[in-house]
Amino acid sequence: MYAAPQRPGDSHRVMLRRFVHDVTGIKLPATKDLMIESRLRRRVLAAGAADFRSYLHWLFEDGGLEQETVPIIDLLTTNKTDFFREPAHFDFLMNRIVPDALARAARGRQTRFRLWSAASSTGAEAWTAAMLMARIALTRPELDWAILGTDISHGVVERATLAVYPMEELRPVPQELRERYIMTGERNGRPVGRIVPELRARVRFGNLNLMETPYPVETGLDAVFLRNVLIYFDPPVQASVIRATAAHLRPGGYLIVGHSESMTVRHGGLHQVAPGVFQKQGES
Protein backbone atom coordinates (compact mmCIF):
# COMPACT_ATOMS: atom_id res chain seq x y z
CA MET A 1 0.00 0.00 0.00
CA TYR A 2 1.32 3.44 -0.90
CA ALA A 3 1.74 5.86 2.00
CA ALA A 4 2.07 9.45 0.81
CA PRO A 5 4.86 11.15 2.75
CA GLN A 6 3.48 13.94 4.88
CA ARG A 7 5.21 17.09 5.99
CA PRO A 8 3.92 19.72 8.41
CA GLY A 9 1.45 21.95 6.63
CA ASP A 10 0.98 19.65 3.63
CA SER A 11 -2.46 19.88 2.10
CA HIS A 12 -4.17 16.88 0.60
CA ARG A 13 -3.72 18.46 -2.84
CA VAL A 14 0.05 18.54 -2.29
CA MET A 15 -0.05 14.93 -1.15
CA LEU A 16 -1.95 13.92 -4.29
CA ARG A 17 0.56 15.63 -6.58
CA ARG A 18 3.41 13.96 -4.69
CA PHE A 19 1.68 10.59 -4.92
CA VAL A 20 1.36 10.90 -8.72
CA HIS A 21 5.03 11.88 -9.01
CA ASP A 22 6.23 9.03 -6.78
CA VAL A 23 4.22 6.41 -8.63
CA THR A 24 4.48 7.59 -12.24
CA GLY A 25 7.42 10.04 -12.36
CA ILE A 26 5.07 12.72 -13.68
CA LYS A 27 5.51 16.07 -11.98
CA LEU A 28 2.27 18.04 -11.64
CA PRO A 29 2.74 21.63 -10.42
CA ALA A 30 0.12 23.44 -8.35
CA THR A 31 -1.05 25.17 -11.53
CA LYS A 32 -2.50 21.79 -12.58
CA ASP A 33 -4.81 21.53 -9.56
CA LEU A 34 -7.92 22.55 -11.52
CA MET A 35 -7.10 20.01 -14.23
CA ILE A 36 -6.60 17.31 -11.60
CA GLU A 37 -9.93 18.11 -9.96
CA SER A 38 -11.72 18.09 -13.30
CA ARG A 39 -10.29 14.73 -14.38
CA LEU A 40 -11.09 13.11 -11.04
CA ARG A 41 -14.68 14.38 -10.88
CA ARG A 42 -16.08 10.99 -11.84
CA ARG A 43 -14.11 9.36 -9.01
CA VAL A 44 -15.59 11.82 -6.52
CA LEU A 45 -19.05 10.72 -7.64
CA ALA A 46 -18.11 7.03 -7.63
CA ALA A 47 -16.81 7.30 -4.08
CA GLY A 48 -19.99 9.02 -2.93
CA ALA A 49 -17.98 11.96 -1.61
CA ALA A 50 -19.73 15.28 -1.09
CA ASP A 51 -17.02 17.20 -2.94
CA PHE A 52 -13.39 17.04 -4.04
CA ARG A 53 -12.11 18.06 -0.61
CA SER A 54 -14.04 15.21 1.00
CA TYR A 55 -12.71 12.81 -1.62
CA LEU A 56 -9.10 13.82 -0.86
CA HIS A 57 -9.74 13.39 2.86
CA TRP A 58 -11.05 9.88 2.19
CA LEU A 59 -7.98 9.09 0.08
CA PHE A 60 -5.35 10.16 2.56
CA GLU A 61 -7.04 9.88 5.96
CA ASP A 62 -9.44 6.97 5.56
CA GLY A 63 -7.46 4.54 3.44
CA GLY A 64 -9.22 5.14 0.14
CA LEU A 65 -6.01 5.61 -1.83
CA GLU A 66 -5.25 1.90 -2.12
CA GLN A 67 -8.43 1.11 -4.06
CA GLU A 68 -8.27 4.34 -6.07
CA THR A 69 -4.67 4.08 -7.29
CA VAL A 70 -5.46 2.47 -10.66
CA PRO A 71 -8.32 4.82 -11.67
CA ILE A 72 -6.41 7.89 -10.47
CA ILE A 73 -3.36 6.97 -12.57
CA ASP A 74 -5.56 6.15 -15.56
CA LEU A 75 -7.28 9.54 -15.36
CA LEU A 76 -4.21 11.69 -14.64
CA THR A 77 -1.80 10.26 -17.20
CA THR A 78 -1.79 11.93 -20.60
CA ASN A 79 -2.64 9.57 -23.45
CA LYS A 80 -2.22 11.76 -26.51
CA THR A 81 -1.28 9.63 -29.51
CA ASP A 82 -1.93 9.38 -33.23
CA PHE A 83 -1.33 6.92 -36.02
CA PHE A 84 1.82 7.88 -37.95
CA ARG A 85 2.68 10.58 -35.41
CA GLU A 86 6.10 12.11 -36.18
CA PRO A 87 6.27 10.14 -39.44
CA ALA A 88 10.00 10.68 -39.96
CA HIS A 89 10.62 8.06 -37.28
CA PHE A 90 8.57 5.50 -39.15
CA ASP A 91 10.44 6.38 -42.35
CA PHE A 92 13.68 5.71 -40.46
CA LEU A 93 12.29 2.39 -39.24
CA MET A 94 11.34 1.37 -42.78
CA ASN A 95 14.38 2.70 -44.62
CA ARG A 96 17.22 2.13 -42.16
CA ILE A 97 16.46 0.02 -39.09
CA VAL A 98 14.64 -2.92 -40.70
CA PRO A 99 16.83 -3.06 -43.85
CA ASP A 100 19.94 -3.09 -41.65
CA ALA A 101 18.50 -6.00 -39.67
CA LEU A 102 17.70 -7.91 -42.83
CA ALA A 103 21.16 -7.24 -44.23
CA ARG A 104 22.79 -8.90 -41.22
CA ALA A 105 21.44 -12.26 -42.35
CA ALA A 106 21.76 -13.96 -45.72
CA ARG A 107 18.72 -13.38 -47.95
CA GLY A 108 16.11 -16.01 -47.27
CA ARG A 109 17.43 -16.76 -43.78
CA GLN A 110 15.02 -15.93 -40.97
CA THR A 111 15.68 -12.54 -39.40
CA ARG A 112 14.33 -12.03 -35.89
CA PHE A 113 13.18 -8.44 -35.25
CA ARG A 114 11.72 -7.21 -31.98
CA LEU A 115 10.34 -3.72 -31.25
CA TRP A 116 9.08 -2.28 -27.96
CA SER A 117 6.65 0.64 -27.80
CA ALA A 118 7.45 1.66 -24.22
CA ALA A 119 4.71 4.27 -23.71
CA SER A 120 2.16 2.83 -26.10
CA SER A 121 -0.97 4.66 -24.91
CA THR A 122 -3.97 3.43 -26.93
CA GLY A 123 -1.73 1.53 -29.34
CA ALA A 124 -1.53 3.81 -32.39
CA GLU A 125 2.27 3.79 -32.38
CA ALA A 126 2.56 0.02 -32.10
CA TRP A 127 -0.10 -0.64 -34.74
CA THR A 128 1.53 1.86 -37.10
CA ALA A 129 4.82 0.00 -36.79
CA ALA A 130 3.00 -3.32 -37.20
CA MET A 131 1.44 -2.28 -40.51
CA LEU A 132 4.83 -1.24 -41.83
CA MET A 133 6.55 -4.41 -40.65
CA ALA A 134 3.84 -6.55 -42.22
CA ARG A 135 4.17 -4.67 -45.51
CA ILE A 136 7.92 -5.29 -45.58
CA ALA A 137 7.34 -8.97 -44.80
CA LEU A 138 5.18 -9.30 -47.92
CA THR A 139 8.34 -9.15 -50.01
CA ARG A 140 10.78 -10.29 -47.31
CA PRO A 141 9.02 -13.25 -45.67
CA GLU A 142 12.18 -14.09 -43.74
CA LEU A 143 11.40 -11.12 -41.48
CA ASP A 144 10.18 -12.64 -38.20
CA TRP A 145 8.82 -9.61 -36.39
CA ALA A 146 6.93 -8.99 -33.16
CA ILE A 147 5.99 -5.90 -31.17
CA LEU A 148 5.39 -5.30 -27.47
CA GLY A 149 3.44 -2.25 -26.32
CA THR A 150 3.35 -1.22 -22.66
CA ASP A 151 1.76 1.59 -20.71
CA ILE A 152 1.09 2.44 -17.08
CA SER A 153 -2.62 3.00 -17.73
CA HIS A 154 -4.80 -0.10 -17.57
CA GLY A 155 -7.54 1.60 -19.58
CA VAL A 156 -5.42 2.41 -22.60
CA VAL A 157 -3.80 -1.03 -22.59
CA GLU A 158 -7.27 -2.59 -22.79
CA ARG A 159 -8.17 -0.34 -25.70
CA ALA A 160 -4.90 -1.04 -27.50
CA THR A 161 -5.46 -4.79 -27.13
CA LEU A 162 -8.99 -4.52 -28.48
CA ALA A 163 -7.55 -2.63 -31.48
CA VAL A 164 -10.82 -0.88 -32.41
CA TYR A 165 -10.68 2.82 -33.35
CA PRO A 166 -13.10 5.44 -34.64
CA MET A 167 -12.49 6.00 -38.34
CA GLU A 168 -11.50 9.62 -37.72
CA GLU A 169 -8.53 8.39 -35.66
CA LEU A 170 -7.48 6.15 -38.56
CA ARG A 171 -7.41 8.94 -41.17
CA PRO A 172 -3.59 9.36 -41.00
CA VAL A 173 -3.17 5.74 -42.13
CA PRO A 174 -2.41 5.63 -45.88
CA GLN A 175 -5.25 4.17 -47.93
CA GLU A 176 -3.19 1.20 -49.09
CA LEU A 177 -2.51 0.18 -45.48
CA ARG A 178 -6.09 0.85 -44.38
CA GLU A 179 -7.43 -1.43 -47.09
CA ARG A 180 -5.02 -4.23 -46.23
CA TYR A 181 -4.81 -4.08 -42.44
CA ILE A 182 -8.03 -2.50 -41.11
CA MET A 183 -11.46 -4.11 -41.06
CA THR A 184 -14.35 -1.64 -41.10
CA GLY A 185 -17.68 -1.77 -39.32
CA GLU A 186 -19.87 0.11 -36.87
CA ARG A 187 -19.92 0.44 -33.12
CA ASN A 188 -22.70 2.30 -31.34
CA GLY A 189 -23.79 3.67 -34.70
CA ARG A 190 -20.35 5.11 -35.52
CA PRO A 191 -17.95 3.86 -38.22
CA VAL A 192 -14.94 2.11 -36.71
CA GLY A 193 -11.97 0.11 -37.87
CA ARG A 194 -10.28 -2.87 -36.25
CA ILE A 195 -6.75 -4.07 -36.85
CA VAL A 196 -6.78 -7.39 -38.73
CA PRO A 197 -6.08 -10.67 -36.89
CA GLU A 198 -2.85 -11.15 -38.88
CA LEU A 199 -1.33 -8.16 -37.06
CA ARG A 200 -3.01 -8.79 -33.72
CA ALA A 201 -1.25 -12.17 -33.62
CA ARG A 202 2.15 -10.46 -33.63
CA VAL A 203 1.51 -7.54 -31.25
CA ARG A 204 0.83 -7.79 -27.54
CA PHE A 205 0.21 -5.17 -24.87
CA GLY A 206 0.70 -5.09 -21.13
CA ASN A 207 0.91 -2.79 -18.16
CA LEU A 208 4.32 -1.44 -17.21
CA ASN A 209 5.36 1.45 -14.99
CA LEU A 210 8.57 3.05 -16.27
CA MET A 211 9.39 4.01 -12.67
CA GLU A 212 9.67 0.37 -11.64
CA THR A 213 13.03 -0.95 -12.79
CA PRO A 214 14.31 -3.37 -13.93
CA TYR A 215 11.64 -3.93 -16.56
CA PRO A 216 10.14 -7.39 -17.20
CA VAL A 217 10.92 -7.06 -20.91
CA GLU A 218 13.28 -9.18 -23.01
CA THR A 219 16.70 -7.84 -23.92
CA GLY A 220 18.38 -7.79 -27.32
CA LEU A 221 15.66 -5.62 -28.87
CA ASP A 222 16.20 -4.02 -32.26
CA ALA A 223 14.26 -0.82 -31.49
CA VAL A 224 12.58 0.89 -28.55
CA PHE A 225 10.10 3.70 -29.16
CA LEU A 226 10.09 5.91 -26.04
CA ARG A 227 8.37 8.91 -27.53
CA ASN A 228 6.64 11.87 -25.94
CA VAL A 229 6.74 10.58 -22.38
CA LEU A 230 10.11 11.90 -21.18
CA ILE A 231 8.78 15.46 -21.33
CA TYR A 232 6.57 14.69 -18.32
CA PHE A 233 9.53 13.64 -16.13
CA ASP A 234 12.10 15.68 -14.26
CA PRO A 235 15.77 15.22 -15.29
CA PRO A 236 16.71 12.49 -12.75
CA VAL A 237 13.72 10.38 -13.80
CA GLN A 238 14.47 11.00 -17.48
CA ALA A 239 18.04 9.74 -17.02
CA SER A 240 16.88 6.68 -15.10
CA VAL A 241 14.26 5.71 -17.69
CA ILE A 242 16.64 6.22 -20.62
CA ARG A 243 19.30 4.11 -18.94
CA ALA A 244 16.82 1.35 -18.10
CA THR A 245 15.24 1.18 -21.55
CA ALA A 246 18.59 1.30 -23.35
CA ALA A 247 19.63 -1.78 -21.40
CA HIS A 248 17.04 -3.77 -23.38
CA LEU A 249 18.55 -2.87 -26.76
CA ARG A 250 20.99 -5.09 -28.57
CA PRO A 251 24.31 -3.46 -29.51
CA GLY A 252 23.48 -1.48 -32.64
CA GLY A 253 19.81 -1.23 -31.67
CA TYR A 254 17.91 2.05 -31.73
CA LEU A 255 16.22 4.17 -29.06
CA ILE A 256 13.67 6.59 -30.54
CA VAL A 257 12.34 9.53 -28.52
CA GLY A 258 10.04 12.40 -29.48
CA HIS A 259 11.49 15.17 -31.62
CA SER A 260 11.19 17.58 -28.69
CA GLU A 261 12.99 15.15 -26.35
CA SER A 262 16.35 14.73 -28.09
CA MET A 263 18.11 17.01 -25.60
CA THR A 264 17.01 14.81 -22.70
CA VAL A 265 19.10 11.87 -23.94
CA ARG A 266 22.52 12.07 -22.31
CA HIS A 267 23.74 8.50 -22.25
CA GLY A 268 27.32 7.62 -23.06
CA GLY A 269 26.32 4.42 -24.81
CA LEU A 270 23.90 6.08 -27.23
CA HIS A 271 24.90 8.01 -30.33
CA GLN A 272 22.42 10.28 -32.14
CA VAL A 273 21.99 9.34 -35.80
CA ALA A 274 18.83 11.31 -36.71
CA PRO A 275 16.41 13.70 -34.99
CA GLY A 276 15.15 11.80 -31.95
CA VAL A 277 16.96 8.59 -32.99
CA PHE A 278 19.87 7.17 -31.00
CA GLN A 279 21.89 4.03 -31.74
CA LYS A 280 23.38 1.87 -28.99
CA GLN A 281 27.11 1.55 -29.33
CA GLY A 282 28.87 -1.80 -29.68
CA GLU A 283 29.16 -4.58 -32.19
CA SER A 284 25.79 -5.65 -33.63
Rank of each mutant, 00 (worst) to 15 (best):
R135D: 14
S262T: 15
V229C: 12
D82S: 04
R140F: 09
V98A: 01
R18A: 04
A137H: 01
I72F: 07
K32Y: 02
V20Q: 02
V14A: 05
F52W: 06
F83T: 08
Y215I: 13
F84L: 06
I147Q: 00
D222S: 13
R39N: 00
E86Q: 13
L148Q: 05
L65T: 03
R178V: 08
T184F: 12
P71W: 14
D74W: 11
M167Q: 12
V229E: 05
L138E: 15
A47E: 05
G258W: 03
T184R: 08
G193F: 00
V273E: 13
P5F: 12
F19M: 15
L75T: 05
D151I: 01
D234N: 15
R96G: 00
S284Q: 03
S153N: 10
L93C: 07
R194Q: 15
L59A: 04
V98N: 00
T128S: 09
F225Y: 15
G25K: 07
T150M: 04
F60Y: 11
F205L: 08
I182Y: 10
E218F: 07
V217S: 04
A247P: 05
R7W: 11
P191H: 01
L93N: 11
R7K: 06
G282N: 10
A4K: 02
I136T: 08
W58Y: 06
R140V: 10
V70T: 11
E37T: 06
R171D: 11
I26M: 07
P29N: 04
